[in-house]
């Protein structure tokens, strides 16, 4: 039944809300845009006063591999949304992906979007927690010292779920 009553401020506040209090962002991809989507959602949660945890797995680990955070690329092949009129073969030319990625990074800098490494530092300084997936780290032969200092721990999937415990918690998979 539609609610036709005009709500006053006080009445509006009485409506029961279930606000998001915590997010767990799982980043399983290592492309520039997927990593940025993850970072922006985690940082955005912190800025809203929510808790935020990040879990990097599989190719997502590339974002938190020491010295590699700022070397991520966007796919110029197999990415139909990227420059629609560009023939796929051109996207595959040597150096094209690096060029496109550096152009994207320049556009982001104009919007004051920090480079990935700085973004991770910001999230850490803001009280966000960054974790790496144990299974993926084992698979890629990565140890704690191979990952950036901001990584709190290398954890199992069970431990990852425990990060999302509590009322008002949401898991976001990228």
């Amino acid at each position: 039944m539609p609610d036709t009553m005009v709500k006053t401020d006080a009445a509006a506040q009485k409506v029961e809300k279930h606000p998001v209090k915590k997010v767990l962002v799982i980043c399983a991809r290592g492309t520039l845009e997927d990593v940025y989507a993850s970072l922006i959602m985690a940082n955005g949660a912190l800025m809203e006063g929510m808790e935020a945890k990040m879990f990097f797995t599989f190719f997502g680990l590339e974002a938190i591999r020491k010295g590699n955070s700022d070397n991520l690329h966007t796919a110029t092949v197999g990415n139909p949304a990227f420059m629609r009129n560009l023939p796929t073969m051109v996207g595959g030319l040597p150096g094209f992906e690096a060029l496109a990625s550096s152009m994207m990074k320049k556009e982001m800098e104009k919007l004051d979007i920090p480079p990935v490494s700085e973004f991770l530092e910001i999230i850490d300084a803001s009280g966000g927690e960054i974790y790496a997936c144990k299974l993926a780290a084992d698979m890629f032969h990565l140890k704690r010292e191979d990952l950036i200092d901001e990584v709190k721990d290398i954890i199992t999937v069970g431990e990852m779920y425990a990060l999302a415990e509590g009322e008002g918690a949401q898991i976001i998979f990228v």
Partner: peptide, 22 residues
């Protein structure tokens, strides 16, 4: 948040401590 961190007045950690909850 990036600008605040580069303001030279507070770092990001301090900013969150000064104004908790968003």
């Amino acid at each position: 948040i990036r600008k605040i961190g580069k303001s030279g007045i507070v770092d990001i950690k301090e900013f969150y401590q000064l104004f908790p909850g968003g």
